[in-house]
Write a protein that binds this DNA or RNA. Structure first.
Length: 237
DNA sequence: AAAAGACGCAACCGCCTACGT
DNA sequence: TACGTAGGCGGTTGCGTCTTT
């Protein structure tokens, strides 16, 4: 070739082009919408054989016409054996409200403390029931403070906005979690940051006084970031 | 009985962080 | 350091079902 290209480079180019076309066609063919029983069985049996992870390559290996994200979501929210998929009890409902008052819309963190229920399930439950329940009780579901007395009746604007991004007022901007303070017991002194965060949450949920805040070492605990984020639900960089 | 509206929930989308190269 | 990929999260959408008219 005189212009700088040889046969090999043309072949490479064509191969890459065909791969791209294949990729586009596959994306176009991806199925959306509700999962069928057959798809659930394919996904479950594949994960039971190969385990979780590698979601992007999973659909092809499991012979599913779904994107990896869709497979992961289906497994995490519905097919995992640990999910109990039942009615949320009154105790759990109370816990969700307490946790939401502390954590805001951090559904995954809330779900982490409600065994057998997923973040999506709790998010839906909050948006469809609990927020309305609080409004009917005269409580602002965003701030967990009493609504203005003039609007004690359910307010449609509030109902609609209650699902939008919000932040807990009482914690996020005032009292950050300090892994070094307020151990629940002497044993906690040797606990991991996760345990300490858990104890911290427990103390907040139970409204125990915790006023021995010490200088904070944020690097010791990832969950600390939730109290210092940028307002969109994701920790600050 | 049928149409319209409301509701609940599964799933999608876009953005982010973590991690490997 | 920059970039690409995978996984995770919260907000939103859209569809099926239920209720009301």
């Amino acid at each position: 070739m005189q212009n700088g290209f040889n046969d090999n480079s043309i072949l490479v180019f064509i191969s890459l082009f065909l791969l791209k076309i294949q990729h586009i066609l596959r994306a176009e063919m991806m199925k959306k919408g509700l999962w069928t029983r057959e798809e659930d069985e394919l996904l479950s049996s594949y994960i039971s054989r190969e385990g979780e992870g590698r979601w992007r390559s999973l659909p092809k290996k499991a012979r599913l016409l779904r994107c990896g994200k869709s497979c992961r979501l289906r497994w995490m929210n519905y097919l995992r054996p640990s999910i109990k998929r039942g009615q949320i009890s009154a105790d759990e409902e109370d816990l969700i409200i307490r946790l939401h008052r502390i954590l805001g819309n951090r559904w995954s963190l809330i779900a982490g403390r409600i065994p057998g229920h997923t973040d999506n399930e709790i998010k839906n439950y909050w948006n469809t029931r609990l927020s309305k329940k609080l409004i009917s009780q005269g409580i602002d579901p965003k701030t967990h403070k009493p609504l203005p007395s003039s609007s004690s009746k359910p307010n449609q604007d509030l109902i609609q906005s209650s699902s939008s991004s919000n932040q807990p007022e009482n914690i996020s901007n005032s009292t950050p979690f300090n892994p070094n303070s307020c151990p629940a017991s002497d044993d906690d002194l040797s606990n991991s940051p996760d345990d300490l965060f858990s104890s911290f949450l427990d103390s907040l949920i139970n409204e125990e006084p915790c006023n021995q805040h010490m200088p904070i070492d944020q690097s010791k605990h990832d969950d600390f970031k939730i109290f210092n984020d940028n307002g969109n639900g994701n920790p600050m960089k």
